[in-house]
Design a binder for these strands. Structure first.
Length: 312
RNA sequence: GCCGAGUUAGCUCAGUUGGUAGAGCAUUCGACUGAAAAUUGAAGGGUCCACAGUUCAAGUCUGUGACUCGGCA
């Protein structure tokens, strides 16, 4: 059986992925599957640089505005939905284009992760957290090491959250965390294109974009969310750009300080993002985001790999 | 001009009774399987303003100079 094609677009935030994906979708009769954990939520808009309604109408988009902050999504749900949507697009004979900045989500598709099927258990998480705070998280990690040494070896004892997750799965399934996770080859023919931009330039673009967000009314957006009762205690609201503005609205910091913090935190986010998709990765075709021939080069890659040519 | 305070990492600053230096932020690199814009680990980086003196030994003490910031004329 011939595997169907899947095109992936990766790159740092503000590198121009969204617009590039739209161009490709239009040229190749494709549909875009977003791989951005913050585009999932209807309520988040300006601060996450979500494409506008008009932009979204330029091509068919999936997995944008499909959730609400009160019912957060996560890796497992994303993997299930994205897989289903990708296959539906392929069955329609169109090209799925997976584009976004959430490295974990993209890799779960690219490496066909078998995600432990047990979702979060809030009460258990809280209990484990309490135990950790009382006895020390190193004790919690020792516990994990006793039950599942393979998982413990991969998790730093100082990383409370991942320690808790591993124990959560073990305690609620009775099975080892390390046995429930697996990876494989994806059932698609894949081509990954990365958009690259020199760090310095990227940082400058980010600074500009954040100024623009303020101009577009980010403060009012956050204010409105707070009025609707979406507070920073929601995991889904723990977003760069929102946390800082909340602090400002509470009078803890000035607007200028909040803006400086957003810039700083976004830069650090860019560096963390880069860990998922590295310039040295031989499977990624890196193209300069500023190259005037960008689209042509990408279409060449698609033609060579998939044999698909742009519709006239 | 006089008096006082200061000059140490890219930035803001610590540096105890003299034993050639630290923190936070920044920068860079790494981990990641149902919170991932989350969580988390590590590294690089200093003629300690200059010169002279005391001392086995000076970021630290003394002197002179330069620069910065206050205050008074």
């Amino acid at each position: 059986m011939i595997e169907k094609p899947l095109l992936l677009i990766v790159g740092a935030t503000a590198s121009g992925k969204s617009a590039f994906a739209i161009e490709l979708a239009r040229a190749l009769d494709g549909e875009i599957v977003s791989a951005d954990s913050r585009y999932l939520y209807r309520e988040l808009d300006i601060g996450v640089a979500k494409p506008t309604e008009a932009e979204l109408n330029l091509a068919k988009h999936h997995l944008i505005n499909v959730a609400t902050l009160i019912e957060p999504w996560n890796l497992g749900l994303y993997k299930q939905s994205a897989t289903k949507i990708i296959e539906e697009i392929q069955m329609r004979g169109r090209l799925p284009i997976l584009a976004g900045g959430t490295g974990q989500y993209i890799r779960s598709i690219l490496q066909n992760w078998q995600v432990p099927s047990h979702g979060p258990v809030d009460q258990l998480r809280e209990d484990l957290e309490t135990i950790g705070n009382k006895m020390g998280f190193d004790k919690l990690h020792e516990m994990l090491d006793a039950i599942d040494p393979e998982a413990a070896a991969k998790i730093d004892y100082r990383n409370h959250r991942r320690t808790i997750r591993a124990l959560e799965v073990i305690l609620s399934t009775g099975k080892k965390f390390s046995d429930l996770r697996d990876k494989d080859k994806p059932p698609y023919q894949t081509l990954t294109i990365g958009l690259e931009l020199p760090r310095e330039l990227l940082y400058a673009r980010i600074d500009q974009r954040i100024e623009d967000m303020i101009g577009k009314g980010l403060v009012a957006e956050v204010q409105h969310l707070l009025e609707l009762g979406f507070g920073p205690s929601l995991d889904s609201m723990r977003v760069i750009g929102y946390n800082e503005i909340v602090s400002h609205l509470r009078g803890e910091i000035s607007l200028d300080e909040a803006i400086a913090l957003i810039k700083r935190n976004t830069r650090s986010y860019v560096r963390r993002q880069a860990n998922w998709f590295k310039p040295t990765d031989p499977k990624i075709y890196w193209l300069n985001a500023q190259d005037p021939m960008l689209l042509e080069k990408a279409l060449d890659l698609v033609r060579n790999k998939f044999g698909i040519t742009p519709a006239e």
